[in-house]
Design a protein around this nucleic acid. Structure first.
Length: 439
RNA sequence: GGAGGGGUGCUCCGAAUGGUAAGGAACUAGUCUUGAAAACUAGCGCCCGAAAGGGCUUGUGGGUUCGAGUCCCACCCCCUCCGCCA
């Protein structure tokens, strides 16, 4: 949510921002409603002031007749006040609905674009010039892994080594259901142990296991509701299943006032994640790239209300994830998302995408965003800065999501005979160097 | 699911015969001090307003009333016990 004062003073900026994000919202209507709201508020305040004054007079009136006179006059005021308060309720309902729809203004560096196809690459690893080849696996020009045989898809490789069972997954859990078995399960657990080891004792990060089953408020606060109701699973109690640990983690300090000296606060949060994937029918229907249920380790940061702080932490969070990919020796690139690929609250977002040989393109594994005070204004998370209270800034980025990244690991590490080399950093956890024959 | 108890100002403690949230603590700034503590002064939630000023705020939403922290209804959350349970 933006500050209504900011919207009033920067109407054109807000309208341009919404347009860049391809989000439809009627700012003129909002400002009209806001004018009505403010005018009515003044009128209501005046009547309440009269009521407050009369109240004192009534309480102090000695003469019974004088008292009755005041009371009957206030009965009239009460009726007018009641009518004005009723229209105020209607106005506020529309005001709130509109306010929740106003998107945050994207950063200047965010480009125009129609879809994720317009995202711009900012860097690639291994570096196409070859300077980082030494630390990566064998690559060809462009920094991509070299295969002198036809590659298999992750769907096929996982089936081949009995690492996954999609048919029984669908039988038991429905469309996009899956079982991971044997080295499939081992690989996921290995990845979890790997990322936990990298983060759980890392300076400054609070390791946290957070709820997936979450009340409506934190979803409104983080900006997932009311817009994305269709993407969420809802329970009969009116709670929702979170698609990311960000929701519960951001809810942690909801309605609280933090101390400036405690900032930044960084979380390394784990939770199971659930996504309905409404609207993506027909996309990635094979394998385990796009599924309804997965596990995610998320970095969440609350920092001081300064753009520079936000930018600094945004770059840090992005680098943290890149380090993990480098250790796994997975070829990746970082893209800056265009306007249309930004969520309601995001100022700027980098996606990290790992090379998918079977598709001949990079596919998203991490998503790193900052929001300024958009989320914290909705969640009411402030900090005391001397005499004033400010809304903190918030950011988040994936640390690791499983099993998605397993798809890119098995594809990039496949050998001609179909066997899969286990990434060095995972070998101790998986307990072997190679998955498949001749082991 | 059942029974009982509870929720007061950014935070903590805590008062208020239906008459419009007392008082503390903490925190911030200042005075004093070599420095600190103490003491003292002011500030210390939100909205409208250039300001003066006004309004709102006792878990949430309704209702009764000229007037609700207080009375009534519904809901939320916390605590204790019972039941069920990995």
């Amino acid at each position: 949510m933006l500050d209504i004062k900011f919207i009033r003073d920067n109407k054109d900026v807000v309208i341009a921002g919404a347009k860049k994000k391809h989000i439809k919202v009627d700012i003129d209507r909002l400002l009209q409603v806001d004018d009505k709201r403010r005018a009515l508020q003044v009128s209501i305040d005046e009547k309440r002031a009269e009521q407050n004054n009369a109240s004192v007079a009534i309480a102090g009136a000695k003469d019974g007749a004088e008292k009755q006179g005041l009371i009957s006059r206030m009965q009239n005021v009460k009726e007018t006040l009641r009518l004005e308060e009723e229209s105020m309720q209607e106005i506020m309902k529309e005001w709130r609905d509109l306010m929740l729809q106003v998107p945050n203004v994207p950063d200047m560096t965010v480009s125009e674009g129609e879809s994720d196809a317009d995202n711009k690459e900012v860097r690639r690893w291994p570096d196409p010039s070859g300077s980082s080849r030494a630390e990566s696996r064998e690559v060809e020009d462009g920094g991509l892994p070299k295969f002198d045989f036809p590659t298999r898809s992750h769907t096929e490789l996982l089936l081949m080594h009995d690492m996954a069972d999609y048919e029984r997954g669908a039988k038991v859990a429905g469309f996009r259901g899956y079982f991971l078995k044997n080295d499939g399960a081992r690989l996921v657990w290995a990845l979890e142990r790997f990322v936990i080891e990298r983060f759980v004792n890392r300076e400054g990060f609070i390791p946290a296991i957070v709820p997936s089953l979450v009340r409506r408020e934190p979803f409104i606060g983080t900006g997932y509701l009311p817009q994305s109701e269709d993407d969420l699973y809802k329970t009969q109690d009116g709670d929702y299943l979170a698609g990311t640990a960000e929701v519960a983690t951001m809810g942690y300090y909801m309605d609280e006032v933090l101390d400036k000296k405690d900032l930044p606060i960084k979380f390394f949060s784990f939770s199971p994640c659930f996504r309905r994937e409404a609207g993506s029918h027909g996309k990635d229907t094979k394998g385990i790239f796009r599924i309804h249920e997965f596990l995610k380790y998320e970095q969440v940061v609350l920092c001081e209300a300064s753009h520079e702080e936000s930018v600094k932490h945004h770059e840090d969070l992005t680098k943290n994830s890149e380090e993990l990919l480098k250790e796994l020796k997975l070829p990746y690139r970082v893209v800056i998302n265009c306007g249309a690929d930004l969520g309601l609250g995001q100022v700027k977002k980098y996606d990290i995408e790992v090379w998918m040989p079977s598709e001949g393109k990079y596919r998203e594994t991490h998503s790193s965003s900052y929001f300024h005070d958009f989320q914290t204004r909705r969640l009411n998370i402030r900090y005391r800065d001397g005499e004033t209270l400010r809304y903190v800034h918030s950011l988040n980025n994936t640390a690791l999501a499983v099993p998605r990244i397993v798809t890119q690991i098995v594809e990039n590490y496949q050998n001609k005979d179909g066997s899969i080399t286990v990434p060095e950093v995972l070998r101790n956890y998986v307990g072997k160097e190679k998955i498949g024959k001749s082991n």
